[in-house]
Amino acid sequence: MRYSYRVNNAPGAAALMTLRMIVGAFMAAPIFIAFAMFFVFITPDSTVRFGPPLLVPVVLGVVAFLLQNLAGFRAAAIPVGTPRRSYVADFQSKLFLRLALAEAVMIVCMALAFVFLDTGFGVFVLGALITEILLVVNGWPSERVIEKYRRALERDGGQSWLREDLGLSTSGLPGSF
C-alpha cells in the first residue's frame, strides 16, 4: 500500500513539494552556519557569556514575526464571480517574503556576533533559533499557512482554488503541521 501524506497526485502537488524542498533548504541553513560559527567563536579558552545584547535577537524576531503576518499574508481579495486563475505564484511570492524576513533575523545576528564579541556566539545562536521558529511557524507551506493565505484571498467571497492548485484535498489530510 502506498501512502501520499498531505499531497495527492494533482499537477500542483509538484509545486508544493518543490516549495517544501526550498523551505527545507532555508531551514537547514541556520544549522550549518551555526556549526561554522561555533568554530569561529568557541576556542578552548573561550567562555560563552550572556548579557543585554541577547535582547536584540528577541526584538528582531518579534518585528520579523509581525511583518510576516502583516505583509506576508496580505493578498488582493478575489471578488465573487472572478474567473478561475492560479494563485500559486502569488502564494510563492509571499512565501519568499516571509522566508526573507525570517532569515534576516539570523543574518543581522551574525553581523552583531562580531560586534558583541563576548556575547557574540549567544547572540547568533539565539538569532538562528528564532529564525528556525519563524520558518516553521510562517514559512513552511503547511496546511495552516496555505489556509491562512487562502482565507486572505477569499475574504470578499471569491474562490481561489489555491488548495486544489497546490494538490491538496479540499477537506485537508491528517498529519500536516
Rank of each mutant, 00 (worst) to 15 (best):
K94C: 10
L60T: 01
G157V: 04
W140N: 11
Q159A: 14
A71P: 00
I130V: 15
G120K: 13
I133V: 15
G158Y: 09
G122K: 08
A100W: 07
G120D: 12
A89M: 11
L168I: 00
F114D: 04
V80W: 06
C109A: 12
F124M: 12
F91P: 04
A71K: 08
L129F: 15
N138G: 13
I146W: 00
Q68M: 08
R98P: 11
L135A: 11
V115F: 12
R85A: 06
L135S: 07
P57T: 08
I146G: 00
I146F: 00
P57I: 05
A104H: 03
A104P: 03
A64K: 04
L117P: 04
F73C: 02
Q92E: 15
Q159K: 14
V136T: 12
M106K: 07
L117E: 15
S93A: 13
G127C: 03
L135T: 07
L95P: 04
V80S: 14
G61Q: 03
Q159I: 15
P53L: 06
V59E: 06
L67F: 14
G158D: 10
L112H: 08
E143K: 00
S142V: 02
L112I: 12
V56C: 03
G167K: 10
L162C: 06
L166R: 01
V125K: 05
I107W: 11
E143M: 01
L70T: 11
Q92H: 09
M106N: 07
K148I: 02
S160W: 00
V137D: 13
E143Q: 06
T119P: 09
M106C: 11
P141M: 02
Y87L: 00
L162T: 03
L129K: 09
V136S: 11
L162S: 03
G157P: 07
E147T: 03
L117N: 14
T170R: 13
L66S: 13
T82M: 14
V105R: 02
L99A: 13
F65A: 14
L66Y: 13
E143N: 02
W161K: 11
S86H: 07
A102H: 02
E132L: 15
V115Q: 09
S169W: 14
G120N: 13
L112R: 10
D90R: 04
V62H: 06
G158W: 08
E103N: 11
I130T: 10
L112A: 11
A76I: 04
N138H: 14
G122Q: 14
A128N: 05
A100V: 09
R144G: 01
V123I: 09
M110K: 08
V59P: 06
A111C: 05
S171T: 13
E154I: 03
S160Q: 02
A71C: 08
V123H: 10
A64E: 02
L129H: 09
A71D: 05
A113H: 07
N138R: 09
V56A: 06
V105Q: 01
F91T: 03
L168F: 00
L101F: 12
F121G: 11
F73V: 01
R74E: 12
A76Y: 04
C109P: 06
C109M: 05
V137A: 15
A76E: 15
L67D: 10
V123F: 05
F96R: 03
V123Q: 05
I78P: 10
I133H: 08
G81I: 04
V80D: 11
R98I: 05
